[in-house]
Design a binder for these strands. Structure first.
Lengths: 97, 97
DNA sequence: CAAATATATAAATATATTTTGAAATATCCT
DNA sequence: AGGATATTTCAAAATATATTTATATATTTG
């Protein structure tokens, strides 16, 4: 299954993806969303007791890396785990021994 | 196949492993060893035109992360790719889309 | 054992990347 | 329009990584 050679570009992407996820606050956000399905930014930053801008920033990183997706509903933006994204990452990690 | 939850510790390990490998000089070292099976430190740093200490440092990182292994033969230390390590990493990367 | 060669480690410094906080800006609802 | 919510931007602070220089350790050979 494995491709023959190490592709530096893909490697860089994967490294940056895992590195981005491996951050305490972002892991906390993922943890929240594993339980609550979806939350808006205010709920998230109040629950985690961080600045609103900081929450938004972390959310954007997780979205960029394909872990989360968001949906706007009026004034609120709801964030939620992208289906299967977490599974894939966990698979990846388990292979990385 | 995937474990249920994201394990922060494992995640951190995998992230740090990929991050460590995703470095131009270390990719170059892996590239050399894909072709030549094994090389000693002198061969490596002369081929890549870097400082001996620098080579030693990179080699140690790759060894610590489980990509390389080494074998001492007299004055020389030969470094080589650890069997299957690269395959696993490539598998991991391919899963990390 | 002393000299030569090969490698490893450590300390100091330089560089790059991330994180954070504050302020400005945008978006949407009533 | 006015208030609530969210995003973006920018710069300072904190962290992480890299590089260099010097020094230490190990091994062989004479």
């Amino acid at each position: 299954m494995a491709t023959q050679k190490l592709d530096p570009k893909k490697l860089e992407e994967a490294a940056s993806k895992l590195r981005a996820i491996a951050h305490p606050m972002r892991i906390a956000i993922i943890g929240l969303l594993e339980r609550k399905n979806q939350m808006n930014v205010t709920e998230i930053y109040e629950t985690l007791k961080i600045e609103q801008a900081s929450a938004s920033h972390h959310l954007n990183i997780l979205k960029t890396k394909g872990v989360l997706d968001s949906r706007r509903a009026g004034k609120n933006t709801f964030y939620f785990l992208k289906p299967h994204a977490l599974e894939q990452i966990i698979d990846c990690i388990n292979r990385c021994h």
